[in-house]
Design a protein around this nucleic acid. Structure first.
Lengths: 242, 242
DNA sequence: GAGTGGTCTAGACCACCTT
DNA sequence: AGGTGGTCTAGACCACTCG
């Protein structure tokens, strides 16, 4: 007897069946919920959890009294703001190659940081791991990042992780996960050092993102500031109105 | 006998009680779910729907096996990307005054549009209402917007709505609502006309947002492009990792 | 009126954290 | 072991759309 599907498995199954074309009719309409419940042998709760997530991903939408429909596919030249995992993983998803060209690492006191998170009080002697990274996309200069990790939380960052994903290293080595990230998006003139790297005049536009990353237990892990090459960066978001 | 609370009412009640300080302890911890179920007389389903929405708003977070906690409040100088309603409403929420200084309206054919949505095929004779708006925030030049509304959907746009909210007019006059909006966020040099309005050198940075707005039945209503004054614009987003 | 999705109830079991 | 949140089942009633 096969095990019942959980929500995540169900989501994958639904996507697979949609993409193979067997689940949708000519109007991109999915079967009704009772039919899907029967087909996948799940209750309505599980089914609707899956459909809700699919619609938050922008993959489908539901119309009250009418049915569930598959949306036309979004272009793949933009980064989904709601993407799971790190930037590297998202870039891989849309078939692009993100590479760290150069990285520096040192330890400082919180009082010496160039910027701080919006709401967090550090002890006077709190130590931060100060990391700068210059990263390219498909060989072209893409972003300059300045981040601070709380040493009391992450302890240390191996050199090789600087050239891959620090979050991945952290989740693997400790037994925990990132829970949520506060992001602030702005535009700003490129500071000189970033302009040099991107081979643009200083003061050119850039997309500026500030991140504050928290663990699933609410603890602050890191905060950072990233300058993106404006010619190569599109962020994508689907806003659901409730 | 009072009626049972629905999810939206419950959310408001919880926020009210949190802000009056009676619901959280010194560690910003809420009572456990069974206690809350009892207190508000709802089932776990309704309670958890509310808590889920509160955590998506960045208001609380839940820790497995530990409890539910209230987050420190976000600064109010940024626009929440997930905000409900239009930009005017969001600006009002954070106590700022958005005003349309100038607006133009004309009707064109889809083939004459300066830009188009990513995935939509227009009939050759599809008519679009072409609207340009120059808007200020607290008296300072804030954004320049160029939008196209499908005439077959909205019919006409009264002059006074140009100086308020077109979406509000639409939802009020028809019996329907906006369902979701696809947004693409970029940075770009200011085009000359926008630079003039914002009193900046042409080529200055700007935050550029492209919107495609759909009704709850999936029908496209409008698409637009907005150049924001980069010195006055911060977009805020909470990314939940699942 | 029949069929669709939206919301809610009641109860069970599981996974995680703390002691 | 006991308490917390995470997931799932089963079933009911409501709101919306369309013929």
């Amino acid at each position: 007897m096969p095990k019942k599907l959980d929500t995540n498995t169900l989501i994958k199954e639904i996507i697979t069946e949609i993409e193979s074309g067997v689940l949708v009719d000519n109007n991109r309409k999915l079967p009704s919920e009772p039919v899907l419940m029967d087909k996948f042998d799940v209750t309505r709760y599980t089914l609707r959890q899956a459909l809700k997530q699919l619609s938050e991903m922008g993959y489908t939408y539901q119309v009250h009294g009418v049915g569930t429909f598959v949306r036309h596919q979004q272009s793949s030249d933009s980064i989904a703001l709601e993407h799971e995992g790190g930037l590297s993983a998202e870039m891989k998803r849309i078939g692009r190659d993100l590479k760290t060209e150069k990285a520096t690492e040192k330890i400082i006191l919180a009082s010496e940081a160039e910027f701080l998170p919006r709401a967090h009080h550090f002890r006077d002697d709190e130590k931060l791991i100060d990391i700068k990274r210059w990263r390219s996309l498909d060989g072209k200069p893409y972003l300059m990042e300045h981040s601070y990790y709380l040493q009391s939380v992450i302890d240390e960052i191996p050199q090789e992780s600087l050239y891959g994903s620090v979050f991945e290293y952290f989740e693997r080595s400790r037994n925990t996960q990132i829970g949520f990230i506060d992001q602030t998006i702005m535009s700003s003139p490129l500071p000189e050092k970033a302009a040099e790297f991107m081979d643009m005049p200083s003061g050119s536009p850039s997309l500026l993102m500030n991140d504050e990353s928290y663990l699933i237990n609410g603890e602050l892990l890191a905060f950072s500031r990233q300058y993106y090459n404006y010619q190569m960066t599109k962020l994508f978001l689907i806003k659901k109105i409730h």
